[in-house]
């Protein structure tokens, strides 16, 4: 393509990026730092051990208030995820009570979970959760890593296009979990509100959920807040996008195919047109 042509292409991409530079909800919230994630970039893949640790953090801490209702226990054994063994998944599932029924007497009953079940939510419904949490509703975490973002501005959005950076969600989650602070002087928070540097509006109804040493790791990974936040954010990214590895792998194959096809087509076209001018 000529210089002018490429300039137009760049302008078109820039126009797209412009439209993506739209402001995310932001009061005076700080911008999260970019983390280095194993699953970013064209060959990105999840770190199995990290996802397994993240699940542990979810089960020991987050699960008390937040559901994960779109994820099934069987997903934990699938390729491209934490890749637990079938046996481990059965054990994890059996540690949950699932409401089932009605049985042949017309009654609902509780039974042990099976791999085909989905994670049960901690509250029966939104109203029950709000009643328990003073009017606040802890959101379900199944797609939270894709439902949160932050403003990147214009050159940033353009750079993200070329760098294939899509990890704004986990960046935000990691920042939020580590962003608790004392409120600035002059601000008094009512009961049940906490100050978080990264939360839009800064006043968050969730108290700091993770502290150093709260969850024990068996693989020697540091038991630090920063590490917990990182692990559970990675886990939630997997929960939101369980086929990410397959997507990137197939994408690479499709690209190779299209590049070869384009090359063949280019020379075919060139030969066809050779006698036309």
């Amino acid at each position: 393509m000529t210089v002018r042509g490429s300039a137009i292409l760049v302008a078109a991409v820039a126009a797209l990026a412009l439209s993506q530079a739209a402001p995310a909800p932001a009061a005076e919230a700080a911008k999260p730092d970019r983390q280095s994630w194993s699953f970013q970039g064209p060959f990105g893949h999840y770190d199995r051990a990290q996802l397994q640790r993240g699940l542990k953090v979810y089960r020991e801490v987050c699960q008390a208030c937040h559901g994960l209702k779109l994820v099934a226990f069987r997903n934990l054994a699938e390729t491209g995820g934490p890749e637990f063994s079938e046996g481990q998944v059965k054990t994890i599932a059996s540690e949950y009570k699932i409401q089932d029924g009605p049985n042949d007497k017309g009654e609902m009953f509780e039974r042990d979970g099976r791999p085909s079940d989905r994670f049960p939510s901690p509250d029966a419904n939104e109203q029950a959760a709000r009643a328990r949490f003073n009017g606040s509703y802890p959101p379900d975490l199944s797609v939270i890593a894709k439902a949160r973002s932050y403003e990147v501005g214009l050159p940033g959005a353009l750079a993200d296009f070329f760098r294939q950076y899509q990890e704004h969600g986990p960046d935000y989650l990691q920042a939020l979990l580590t962003g608790y602070q004392e409120p600035p002087a002059g601000v008094t928070l009512p009961d049940g509100q906490y100050w978080n540097k990264y939360f839009p509006g800064n006043r968050i109804a969730m108290s700091q959920p993770l502290q150093d040493g709260q969850v024990s790791y068996t693989d020697g990974t540091p038991e630090k807040l920063d590490q917990y936040a990182r692990d559970v954010s990675a886990f939630l990214m997997w929960a939101a996008e369980p086929h990410l590895e397959q997507r990137k792998r197939i994408g690479f194959q499709v690209m190779i195919f299209l590049i070869i096809f384009a090359g063949l087509m280019y020379f075919t076209k060139k030969k066809v047109w050779a006698d036309a001018h």
């Binding site: 296009f161 499709v254 690209m255």
Partner: peptide, 29 residues
Amino acid sequence: TKDNFALILFLMFFAYFVFYIPNYLGHAD
């Protein structure tokens, strides 16, 4: 032949979005 060559280049651009940045043009909300 010319249309097909251009189409394949366009499909590469398309595939880049689908496989690598599928949510780039969407809104997190």
